[in-house]
Design a binder for these strands. Structure first.
Lengths: 222, 222
DNA sequence: TTGCCGAATGTCAGCGACTGACATAATCTC
DNA sequence: GAGATTATGTCAGTCGCTGACATTCGGCAA
């Protein structure tokens, strides 16, 4: 995750990584949080790479040695949440069917992430970012592309979990795509409707969208 | 659709539009087809706006008066296919349930489009473009964002069709998202597996993915 | 400590996407 | 055919992004 929660303590455990690695990690974190701050205050399009770099006191060229492009630094905030979700999914019991496993994994991941960090951990940052993404076409495009990569990964996980050959059975990929669609729909609903703020609100919106999955596909809508 | 199929005939019906409008339409079509050709032969990333403009004998500045950006001219080839799909969806009988209507609409749209034009109509161009999109990250991102706009439209159509308020009932949006997911999954499968070429191949892949929708969401995968 | 190696960074030049401003030339209207 | 519209060209400039080269900094052994 980003930065050090308590700048006072410099734990000795960090020594396992050389000074060089620690420094790299610090500038990377600094770039991410500076970018996040600038994007939220001035808007994504009105923020310049030069500004971000200047904020961290680093040359613009260095920025591109950490991130391939402007979108990447913005989306980096979500990386941990996504990783946590995948980790959660791996540990779901085999008794759950695939759809149940996916659904409980996101809900659990959001809940855990919002519980662990007491105050302004990455969760709030992630929620702010989702908001920003939905109102920034360029970011949305980049995010959607990342999502498809994630779906491929999820499909493979599900396939392995069920002992299937993903190149033969279409179900894992279809399920992953459906899952992605429902989730995206939930994100959009959450970000355009401020009646359910915070992680709990997001969880509630996600649950309600999953609840509508069956009815939406059913023949009879009455 | 693009260009005139038979350059010999200059139908009098065109006179209803002024010379100015006709000219604009012609340069627009010329830009789209030049871009399409260059993208397919040299690759999207290695094709320059200047090259496209030069091909049509137009200044680069003019290009940006027709298209907001490089992605837009590439994706323009799909616009007609999408419009045709939406038109088809509007005419589906009320007896079909929403999911059925969506499914039969794409299949019918593809079939009609591949039947109407005898030889190299827009259908082949659309298929070539889908292929290009899947192997070009930048294009894929832009395409996915367009898809989400389409999904919003589809959700509204379905809601009206079923006499629902789309701001209350989540089913239309969830269904549209699921539909988009299945379709995207099918496109990916089609473009990465050359065993089913042409429109018929695409239709077959789409059908098989829809067939897996129920099983994928079912509790029991055995 | 010294000194060397490799990795991280800065500097600089340059390409390509995209935009605003203004001038010019083409159509449209009367 | 004159004047109002509108499309187009030209030009200058910003910003995202990259390659090449020089410099500096951390890691490591003599």
């Amino acid at each position: 995750m980003a930065a050090q929660p308590l700048p006072s303590a410099e734990p000795a455990a960090c020594r396992v990584l050389g000074l060089r690695e620690r420094k790299k990690q610090r500038t990377r974190d600094a770039l991410v949080s500076a970018a996040h701050r600038l994007f939220l205050s001035h808007g994504y399009g009105r923020t310049t790479i030069d500004e971000i770099a200047a904020e961290v006191d680093v040359s613009p060229r260095t920025f591109f040695r950490y991130f391939a492009n402007k979108e990447e630094v913005a989306l980096a905030v979500l990386a941990d949440a996504e990783d946590y979700f995948v980790a959660t999914l791996r540990e779901r019991p085999a008794s759950e069917n695939p759809l149940q496993a996916l659904r409980s994994s996101i809900v659990l991941a959001w809940r855990d992430l919002s519980d662990t960090g007491t105050s302004d951990t990455g969760v709030t940052a992630a929620l702010e970012l989702i908001q920003l993404i939905e109102e920034t076409p360029t970011l949305l495009a980049a995010h959607l592309r990342r999502i498809t990569d994630q779906e491929r990964l999820i499909a493979e996980l599900i396939a392995r979990r069920e002992g299937l050959d993903p190149s033969v059975d279409l179900r894992p990929r279809v399920l992953a795509a459906v899952f992605g669609g429902v989730l995206r729909s939930a994100h959009l609903a959450w970000s355009s409707d401020h009646s359910a703020p915070g992680p709990e609100g997001m969880i509630a919106v996600i649950e309600s969208h999953f609840d509508q999955l069956g009815p939406a596909l059913a023949g009879d809508w009455r």
